[in-house]
């Protein structure tokens, strides 16, 4: 690693003021695991790191808001999210996702803001947050703005955030009786980067599905929402036939890429199988 300066601002606004959109060697370090990996492998040579460890404690807290949505401070660690009972009651899928996400030590350090801002397409959490229709609130010298997580990622390790814009919190809208599922598929070790992850939320009105959000992570450059499959499902009863048609629609519409986790053709089959299983799981959940 090369030599760099380390700043430890006390406020998020202070952190933003240290950033220079023209200088990519100045970066914010939240939990720091991903950044440290990039620095240790000489992928990233910072001149200055801005640690968020000392910013206001409010950014590492979470809870229900009066309007029924759930707010997660961006500095909350993944393990804070895993262990928060209110969040587990609000969206049980998050706690389920955490169990196989990286490992205990990384979850103890990595933050939700950092995970989203990093833009790594191989993560488990972004597709889940997209399926939950979550939004991020950001702060920059221009002020605050709200961005749906679904629009946050622009490509491979790329987001639409500007160089001096930081995520301050994640807001998940009320889920009411929406059902959710996340299925992770690995192809080498059981605990591995996902070859794909299928995140699904839907309203089941009686047996009829509405407002389905089906998101596939890790197969492309960013989480992919599969409108073609959602269209098959919405307004239908989740019968075996509908589920099979939706799985086929997902397999046909999602473009897969060959890598060491599998060929494109095999991953297409995995999309079909895991979309089917996620739908079956949601159909069988107790309301």
């Amino acid at each position: 690693m090369n030599a760099f300066e380390l700043a430890l601002p006390d406020t998020l606004a202070g952190a933003v003021s240290l950033l220079d959109p023209e200088d990519p060697t100045i970066r914010v370090m939240s939990g720091g695991t991903a950044l440290m990996l990039m620095m240790k492998t000489d992928v990233f040579h910072p001149t200055q790191l801005i640690s968020l460890r000392r910013i206001e404690p409010g950014y590492s807290q979470m809870g229900l808001l009066p309007d029924g949505s759930f707010r997660i401070g961006a500095m909350s660690t993944l393990s804070d999210m895993e262990h928060d009972d209110a969040l587990a009651g609000f969206a049980p899928v998050i706690r389920q996702t955490m169990k196989l996400l990286s490992n205990v030590r990384v979850r103890n350090v990595a933050t939700v803001g950092g995970a989203l801002a990093h833009g790594d397409p191989h993560m488990d959490l972004p597709p889940v947050l997209v399926a939950l229709d979550a939004q991020v609130v950001t702060i920059s010298p221009e002020g605050e703005r709200t961005i749906p997580v679904a629009e946050l990622h622009a490509g491979y390790y790329e987001t639409i955030l500007s160089g001096n814009e930081l995520i301050k919190e994640v807001i998940i809208p009320p889920q009411h009786a929406r059902r959710a599922s996340y299925l992770k598929c690995t192809t080498r070790a059981v605990k591995d980067w996902p070859a794909l992850g299928v995140a699904l939320t839907t309203d089941l009105d009686g047996d009829t599905a509405r407002d389905t959000r089906l998101v596939i992570g890790a197969v492309g450059e960013k989480p992919i929402r599969v409108a073609e499959a959602e269209a098959v499902i919405d307004g239908q009863i989740l019968s075996d036939k509908t589920i099979a048609e939706a799985a086929d629609a997902a397999a046909e519409s999602v473009e897969t890429i060959e890598d060491e986790l599998g060929s494109a053709a095999y991953k297409t089959q995995l999309v079909r199988v895991y979309v089917k299983r996620a739908l079956q799981q949601v159909a069988n959940q107790n309301a």
Binding site: T187, E258, G262, S263, A265, Y266, Q269
Partner: peptide
């Protein structure tokens, strides 16, 4: 013995081989 190796062999045995890259 990965899942893909076995799946491809099963598809080939069934006369519906999975396309190669």
């Amino acid at each position: 013995i990965t899942g893909e190796t076995v799946y491809r062999a099963m598809r080939a045995a069934a006369g519906e081989p999975l396309e190669e890259e």
